[in-house]
């Protein structure tokens, strides 16, 4: 039980980030779709709106698919993704715990992204709906 070098503390930080892959992708997803939808709707307000609306829906569905796939991939290819972020495996005796919570978080994030994507299927892109 000797002290460890600085590397292991950075790796520790990396492992924390690895646990959070799902929610981090979720936040990127929300930023992308909300940002692009607000921007396109604002630009399109006065002109012919159908083209802009189609663009909005396309972007949302595409972003949703990509993000869900990315999170799904990370939840399956645990070691690869962890090595990518933190260089190396998580500590062996912590593996079970870390992987479990990472996967459940990934699942919840996928659900949340799916919910958001659902809106784009049901609702028009830019209308105030009032």
């Amino acid at each position: 039980m000797r002290r460890m070098g600085p590397r292991s503390n950075l790796q520790g930080m990396g492992t924390l980030v690895f646990i959070l892959v799902g929610p981090i992708v979720w936040s990127v997803h929300l930023t992308v779709i909300y940002g692009s939808q607000s921007l396109l709707c604002a630009l399109n307000l006065s002109e012919d709106r159908s083209a802009g609306n189609a663009a909005v829906v396309t972007i949302i569905l595409f972003a949703t698919a990509v993000c869900i796939a990315a999170v799904g991939f990370s939840a399956v290819r645990i070691r690869f993704v962890h090595a990518l972020i933190a260089r190396g495996d998580p500590p062996a005796d912590q593996m079970g715990f870390i992987v479990t919570i990472m996967r459940i978080l990934a699942g919840l994030s996928i659900l949340a992204m799916f919910y958001v994507g659902l809106g784009a299927v049901i609702l028009p892109a830019c209308d105030q709906l009032r």
Binding site: P23, I33, Q37, S38, A112, Y115, V116, L123, P124, Q128
Partner: peptide
């Protein structure tokens, strides 16, 4: 902790921003 950052527009549902924007935050 994370999802709570995706809810803020939840307080702005009646400000007249597009319905789909509201839907994102309803989903979160």
């Amino acid at each position: 902790g994370f999802f709570s950052f995706g809810l803020w527009v939840h307080h702005m549902f009646t400000t007249g921003i597009p319905g789909l924007s509201l839907a994102f935050f309803s989903a979160a």
